[in-house]
């Protein structure tokens, strides 16, 4: 009896050790998950989406032009990269969005600063600005393409207009939020206009400004796309229209994923710039 018991006890001992190891591993995974949840959750999410994708195709038996399987989207991606068409169209859209964004940023900065500093000017101009904002841009986009042409100019303009307002609001808010005591302090130093701006107003408004910048970048890309939908030879927007019209649905998917990637990358870049520019400040401050 004793002889039988001995190995049996040894075995329970080793299983409990194994269990402890498992528990340890689980707690470490849980720790990692809580600390860097994106590393765990994102792959899980992607697997879930892919699974659903296959499942829908399997159950509904959908034809390729309605919902292509992931592997044909992948093949299409390789193809548009290799024939260079993706590069050309990404370049076109990015250029239109970039110029539009730069113009919106500069213009919103100047106008927002003036309106932020002068309540009188804001009272005078804000009805027109609000009215301008209520014009549905998608409705007048065809007209803009007629006026400004099939080329990049109309896309830049639409990207500019759509990115302008959110940034304008942020600039005004940023300037208004400058602490009145800090202004008085600068006044007591007889600070010049430029010193007031560069030492107080700009750094004080920076967190709000960067918040506007993050929104503005995505908005500008949307603007460029709207312009390309209406009429263009190049750009991801026109590429989507052509692909859809010729039932190349897998290409539409490729472009959608490309756009999502571009937005995510730009947002991440903007967040990095933000983290660098706001280093040292209290965390809650960043918008």
């Amino acid at each position: 009896m004793g002889n039988i018991q001995f190995p049996a006890r040894k075995q329970t001992n080793s299983t409990s050790q194994l269990n402890a190891k498992k528990a340890n591993l689980a707690s470490r995974a849980w720790k990692l998950m809580r600390k860097r949840s994106e590393f765990v959750l994102l792959p899980m999410f992607l697997i879930l989406v892919l699974g659903l994708w296959y499942l829908i195709i399997e159950i509904k038996d959908l034809p390729q032009f309605i919902l292509p399987p992931p592997e044909s989207v992948w093949k299409k991606l390789i193809q548009v990269i290799e024939d260079g068409s993706l590069k050309i169209n990404v370049g076109f859209t990015m250029k239109a969005a970039g110029y539009g964004f730069a113009a919106a940023f500069g213009f919103a900065g100047v106008v927002g600063y003036i309106l932020g500093k002068s309540p009188l000017m804001e009272k005078f101009l804000s009805p027109y600005l609000v009215a301008a904002q209520t014009v549905p841009l998608i409705a007048i986009a065809p007209l803009l393409v007629v006026w400004l042409g099939f080329g990049i100019a109309s896309k830049i303009f639409i990207a500019f207009v759509i990115g302008f307002f959110p940034m304008l609001v942020n600039v005004i808010v940023g300037i208004r939020l400058v602490n009145e005591d800090q202004r008085e302090l600068m006044r007591s130093y007889s600070a010049s206009w430029w010193q007031l701006f560069s030492k107080l107003e700009f750094p004080s408004a920076l967190p709000v400004l960067l918040g506007g910048l993050k929104i503005g970048i995505t908005m500008a890309i949307t603007g460029a796309l709207v312009g390309e939908y209406v009429g263009a030879r190049y750009g991801l927007g026109s590429m989507i229209i052509h692909a859809k019209e010729t039932f190349r649905t897998s290409e539409v998917f490729v472009i959608i994923f490309t756009l999502v990637s571009i937005n995510v990358i730009l947002y991440a870049l903007a967040s990095m710039v933000e983290a660098i520019l706001l280093s040292g400040r209290k965390r809650e401050e960043s918008v």
Partner: peptide, 9 residues
């Protein structure tokens, strides 16, 4: 001033 009014950045 009553508040320190330091520049937080």
């Amino acid at each position: 001033f009553q508040a320190p009014v330091l520049f937080e950045w």
